[in-house]
Amino acid sequence: MKQIKHHLTESLLMGYAAGTLPEAFDLVVATHVSMCDDCRAAVAEYDAVGGEVMLDMPPMDIDVDALAATLAMIDKGAPVPKPRQKARGVFPAPLQDYVAGDLSAVKWRKVGGGVSQMVLKTSGDATVRLLKIPAGTAIPDHGHHGTELTLVLQGAFFDDTDRFAAGDIEVANEDLNHTPIAEAGADCICLAASDAPLRFNGIMPRIAQRFIGI
């Protein structure tokens, strides 16, 4: 496994374990965790915190026939779940579920400047998309109103802060203005989620934004 340098924040790890993030963020977290043992272990720890919170709840009366009703549901039978195996290909399994396939199944749509995207369908306020940035290309300088998560799946990009390669995740908030540039060599493919529209700093990108929808 490659060395991953940029990880999830504590608040995202806890939010994912608590099950309170928007679906778009859950998808990025689940995809990163599939690639990163450190964050997998950290989520397990926050799951344990959730288990202890649940244990400490004052027990609530339940229906007298609740157990019987539950056993009746069990008797009806249900498919026996199996562990979900590691996906083959570039995309980890949770992402393949949303794309309905691997990288080759992505329906790219050009959004200008050589960049292509595919918006993935999720419910809730946040949005998530796959981005393909040709090697050496920059995404216009932008800031963020909310939180933006960018997970690299293939290739690498760098910005004012650092270099991000496959498996790395950048968590950007209001404070970060940056111009991510895809590294020369290979196209950079990212999974990016945002809970607010990006804020572009030039007038031209702002006009373009209306058309490209990022």
Partner: peptide, 29 residues
């Protein structure tokens, strides 16, 4: 995981599914 942890994760996912009516992306095993 402890059993309490494991049952919590099931409850969390059930809450997302039944109450928030969202999908829950989970990491691959």
């Amino acid at each position: 995981a402890s059993v309490s942890t494991w049952i919590f994760t099931i409850a969390r996912n059930k809450r997302i599914d039944m109450i928030r009516k969202q999908r829950r992306p989970e990491p691959e095993d």
